[in-house]
Design a protein around this nucleic acid. Structure first.
Lengths: 240, 240
DNA sequence: CAGTGGTCTAGACCACTTT
DNA sequence: AAGTGGTCTAGACCACTGG
C-alpha cells in the first residue's frame, strides 16, 4: 500500500480496476498515451506497469489496437510466483493448518541446496492444505531460513497470505522464483491431506523463491490435485 | 539470423556466448554501461536484452553487483515457451515420428476453443516423441490451422525445430503462450509411446501459442515422463 | 568511494490497425 | 490520416554492493 514506485502504483490500480470490472473482459484499456497524460508519467513507466499485467495474464497487447483485457480460464495461475491468495477469490478458499510454524533443523534430504548462511541458521517450517469449495487442492510445505525474522512463529497466521505477511512484517519482497515440476503418484500422507486414493497422479512442485535480501531464499514443496483445477501459466515476451 | 532488432541481436549474442562458456557459470557479464559503450546502444535497449536473458533463466541481476550467469539445473526449461530443441543439447536428442504432418479436420473434442477463422480452415496435425539418451521423455501432438502455410506437409522435417522452421519458411514468430498443466495417469497410447506402464503418472500440458499473425495460434498437447527429467521454470519480475 | 542495476523522464521514428 | 503499441535514444537520480 505504501508503495512509492510509480509503475507498481499504476499496475496495482489497473489490476484492481480489471478485477472490479471497471474494464470488463474483452474491453480495451486506455491507450499508453492516455495513461501517460492521466497519470503524469513517462511512457516507459506506463509500459512497465502494462508489461507486468501482460505477463500475469490480465491483458494482451496488440500493435495498432491497444491493451485488451484477457479472458481468464478456470485454472490456477500458480506457475508464476503469485501465491494462492492472489489468484483465487477469497471466499472460495479454506486453509487447514497441518503444521503450525515451528523452528527446527533443516531436513537431512532437503530438496534444494542451501548456502552456508542458510544452512547454519536452522529453519522455520509450516505446512497447510488449501481448499477451494470444500475440496482440497494443494498441500504446501514451506521452509524459511531462521534469519532475522523475529516473532515469526508467533505472529504468522497460517490462513493469511504468506507473501503479504512477509512484506508487512519484515519488508521482505519476493523478486522471482525457480521451480521444478513432476507428475508423481500420491503417497499415503499426501493422499490423506488431499483426500485422494493412494497412487493418484498429483503435481509435485519444488520452488525456490528469491527475495530482496540477496542471500535469503524461501523454499516450498507443493502437491496439487489437478483433477478439477489445472495449473496455468501465461508467458509473453520480455518487454520494455 | 537476419534480425535487425537491436535488443534481440544483443540477446542472441550474449546467449551464444553464455552457452559457449565465454561467460561461465557464476561469472559476471559486462556491466550495462559497458555493454552500452561496446554496442553503441542506449541503456534501455541493453536492459531489454538482459531482461530476456533473465526471464529465461540464463542470468540473475543483482543491484550493485551485476548480471551473473546462473547455474542451470538438470531439468528441462520447458515451461517458458522455448522449444525442446532450444533447451536440450542437440546430440542427446532423438526424435521419433509418430504422425507425419497431415491435413485433416479439427478433432471434435479439441482441447482449446478456436476462433472462426481457425475452425474454418482445417488443421495440420503431427505427432512426435522426443527422447534424451535413448529414453522417451515427451510425446508431443501439435495442431496448426491450415492458413497460408503452403507446402507445410511436404517441407517440415519432424526431427528439426518446429519454431525455427516456421520462422525461416513463413516469417512466423512465437510471441507468447498460455498453458495448463495436469498430473494424469498414462493411458495405453501414451504409455506405449513413452515406454511406461499404463497408469504411470505423467505431466499433461496443453498449450496455445501466440504468433506475430494476430489470429493465428498454434496448439500443442504434451505428455511428459518426469521420472528422470523434471520440467523447470524461472520467473523474475517484469522489467524495463 | 566508484560502480552497479532499478527507476524515471521526454522526446523520436516505426509498423500496424482502424476510420 | 489518426491512433496504437514496439523500438530506441540520451540523459537523470536513486539504493545498493564492493573495496
Amino acid at each position: 500500500m505504501e508503495n512509492t514506485l510509480q509503475y507498481k502504483n499504476l499496475y496495482n490500480r489497473l489490476k484492481k480496476e480489471i478485477l472490479a470490472d471497471v474494464y470488463p473482459l474483452g474491453s480495451v484499456l486506455p491507450s499508453e498515451n492516455e495513461l501517460c497524460a492521466a497519470s503524469s508519467l513517462a511512457r516507459s513507466t506506463v509500459r512497465q506497469a502494462l508489461s507486468q499485467l501482460e505477463t500475469e495474464g490480465y491483458i494482451v497487447k496488440q500493435k495498432g489496437k491497444g491493451s485488451i483485457v484477457k479472458s481468464k480460464s478456470r485454472a490456477l495461475n500458480l506457475l508464476s510466483f503469485h501465491g494462492f491468495s492472489a489468484t483465487v477469490e477469497q471466499d472460495e478458499i479454506f486453509t487447514l493448518s497441518v503444521q503450525e510454524p515451528l523452528i527446527q533443523p533443516w531436513p537431512a534430504d532437503f530438496f534444494f541446496d542451501l548456502n552456508e548462511i542458510e544452512s547454519g541458521a536452522g529453519c522455520i517450517h509450516f505446512s497447510r492444505v488449501r481448499s477451494i469449495d470444500q475440496q482440497p487442492v494443494m498441500f504446501e510445505s514451506t521452509y524459511v531460513p531462521n534469519l532475522n525474522l523475529p516473532k515469526f512463529t508467533r505472529q504468522f497466521q497460517l490462513h493469511t497470505s504468506f507473501f503479504e505477511f512477509l512484506g508487512k512484517e519484515y519488508h521482505l519482497e519476493i523478486m522471482g522464483m525457480d521451480q521444478q515440476i513432476w507428475a508423481v503418484a500420491a503417497e499415503a500422507a499426501i493422499a490423506t491431506h488431499l483426500q485422494l486414493p493412494i497412487g493418484t497422479p498429483v503435481l509435485k512442485i519444488s520452488r525456490k523463491y528469491h527475495t530482496n535480501r540477496p542471500h535469503l531464499h524461501l523454499y516450498s514443496l507443493l502437491f496439487c490435485n489437478t483433477e478439477k483445477y489445472a495449473m496455468s501459466n501465461s508467458s509473453g515476451l520480455v518487454n520494455a
